[in-house]
Design a protein around this nucleic acid. Sequence first.
DNA 1: TTCTCGCCTGAGCTATTGCTCATAGCTTGG
DNA 2: CCAAGCTATGAGCAATAGCTCAGGCGAGAA
Lengths: 316, 316
Amino acid sequence: MAAENDKSRLDDAARAGWLYFIAGHTQDEIAKMLQVSRASAQRLVSLCLAERLITFRLEHPIAACMELAARLKERFDLVHCEVVPADPAAPQAVAGIAERCANLLDSTLRSETPVIVALGTGRAVRAAVERVTPIDRPNHQIVSLVGNISADGSASFYDTVGRLADRTGARHYPMPLPFLMSSEDERNKMVRIEPIAKVKAVAAKADLRLVGIGQMDQKAQVHIDGFVTRDELFEMMRLGAIGEITGWAYDAKGRLLKAGTNKRLTSIPPEVPAKATTIGAAVGAAKVPAIAAALNGRLINGLITDEATARAILER
Amino acid sequence: MAAENDKSRLDDAARAGWLYFIAGHTQDEIAKMLQVSRASAQRLVSLCLAERLITFRLEHPIAACMELAARLKERFDLVHCEVVPADPAAPQAVAGIAERCANLLDSTLRSETPVIVALGTGRAVRAAVERVTPIDRPNHQIVSLVGNISADGSASFYDTVGRLADRTGARHYPMPLPFLMSSEDERNKMVRIEPIAKVKAVAAKADLRLVGIGQMDQKAQVHIDGFVTRDELFEMMRLGAIGEITGWAYDAKGRLLKAGTNKRLTSIPPEVPAKATTIGAAVGAAKVPAIAAALNGRLINGLITDEATARAILER
DNA sequence: TTCTCGCCTGAGCTATTGCTCATAGCTTGG
DNA sequence: CCAAGCTATGAGCAATAGCTCAGGCGAGAA
């Protein structure tokens, strides 16, 4: 009896679903066809969905990205996640995620109410800033999370804060410090001086932090860019460093190391767990362990990456 | 440029479609996520559908039936078509289509305004009548399209009109004639007498005709039931008869034959093309040519059959 | 460069859908 | 056989979606 009823009910649900999704009829029409009230027709359509009698298949590369993003968001409890299609021609290409980062910055900066945006390191972040749509928002504030004086004393080539300020008319707070100080004491002294304390204070109130994620291996960007020496890099690797965010090295579980260069870093340390929306932007197989660690350690609560990287992170 | 734009537009459409159909968000939410107006979000979802980026798959036997019905309806310009799942255990089973026929009768008879229902021959029609839900509709009229006196002079076992009248309280008009008269002259004489003319007049105004379809082969129901002799059957077959509706034999193109038993038939002839809603009800591989011919000749403008038969008709 | 054409956009309205609640019918247990 | 509980039903309302129209923006031609 029950089975018979259920079966005929599911049959009707399937019919209703077919008529609704495939034939494109309204529920009113379906109700008339199946000789039931509109409310019942609606229930049948719902049932068809609930029982998974009907499935949706999105035949488009984007579909996979959307699903990966949803899974990452779920798995790591993220406030924001975007996955862009990997460019087969250039697997490490930062263009795709930069576009999304720029979009994120755009929409954040579009707000009329003052917002504070903090920027970290990374090619994606730099490229993103270049793509931000100019807009006049003098009440916003842009703050740097990392020192923009490189080892040789010159201002860093990558003045992302300044560039973004140019495009928005926002006040900006570069960090007028070298990336690394020569000793822990000196670092501690410097971060207390007025201009730096001010930058720290602004950064602490940031509404959005956009940071790159670097891997700590022989091709670590912090080394290539000359911020840390080969020896410093190797020491950090020995200490378990697997990735870095704004120069702060962390291990495979996303714990910030309390030694080595981390003691002399002037960068504003990541909050753990990230309180403000902190979006990591990174792609590439080499960065997978670093990204995964940052996610697990909750150094970041948002991620913008590409399809291949997303898949690799989820498959670990 | 254009291609680039189109591509990104399709990407967005895919995103919107994914968020709408798979993630189950509202278009308002999607609009916010994609940073567009709700109207645009709606357009993206439409586009996703229009571009067939998304496809619906109904994993249920009913889905195939629905599609077959839609194709039959389209192909033969039918006012009504239903296809029921074939019962693998009993390929010739009439139960499925009888249930649908009964449902059709139910909904027709449910009307408060007087309707005229005409019934033909066939196991499905008989079984359908047995399943009709009793309802009190004294103003309806039920009329028989075929004589209910069999060759031996007794009232036919299959008094469908009477049974249906019992269940509805409707007036009914059986046809008090033998199926076949002994000659054309006699037939012409009989159909002019008052009670028969009355039945014809009512039948001509029928809102719904429900008829079985018989094949004209050695297992023809009209022969098995003893209405036509073996010789008569063979003669009709020689004349090209491939099927019959209410006894009226027609050829492979659905043209009524003007010879043989058709000259002595008392049944009310099918209107060609069918004016009233005329639903054929039949299943079985043997009946496929007969059904297809009836459809092509527009002897019927509606069909209730099963999956296997529907498929065979479409594949001819 | 400026004009024109045409597509895209957003506002606002209407149709459709989803949901809630009170009711009715059915099942199950006493 | 009756009563109690449960599920299904239909009315009505709030939310959502679809559509039309006027206006704007950009591409392409002069």
